[in-house]
Amino acid sequence: MSRFTLDQEIKLVQDEMLLLGSLAEQAILNSVDALRRRDVAAAKGINLEDKRINDKRFAIENHILIIFATQSPLAHDLRVLAAMLEIITELERIGDYAKGISKVAIRLADDDTPIPIREISAMADKATSMLHRALGAFVSEDLSAAYAISKEDEEVDEQYRTIYRKVVQNMIKNPEKIDHADQVLWVIHNLERTADRVTNICERIVFVVSGELLELDNTDDEDKEA
């Protein structure tokens, strides 16, 4: 087959990947919104949406494997396709984080205990904005944007620590609310992980452009989760 069709095929996969990214991004925002509004129906809707994300991820994976088998892409094309194979996995995981948050939203829907929802929303906004821009940077192969976005992960980590401290203080003050606080910690943990996944996407951008496999996340995962 000619080069022209390979280019077209790659563009098609790229569009599909962007759509998957949009699904994941919206799932995170919707799950936090469901948590805010204590909206069980919306939270359950995210479960269905997650199935769609998983299906789409497999469809894209299939598409990429067919391209590998039929077109034998080389060099840059090969890197783009391999990177997308990786990125769709990250996006699928982000979808799972959204599902995790929506489960918490369902569990906490009948509980009147206040949630630091404004801080959580800000964290979700930051993480999804990073995701949105990272996928844009992948398409335009913008190396400096990739580095800048991965740096923003530190801000999300900081937001995480601030909310974490606040929630733990509440735990100490109101031990009877520990279960509730534990759920809130789950939510911010998922958001923090979302931003980490975006950093992985940024690593793939560096890989596509330079061919180098770099670790952009300087903090050790174990450290962070401790």
Partner: peptide
């Protein structure tokens, strides 16, 4: 460019 690249939202597409 493709509409997906520009609007970047599945519902719009």
């Amino acid at each position: 460019r493709s509409i997906v690249e520009v609007v970047r939202h599945h519902r719009l597409v």
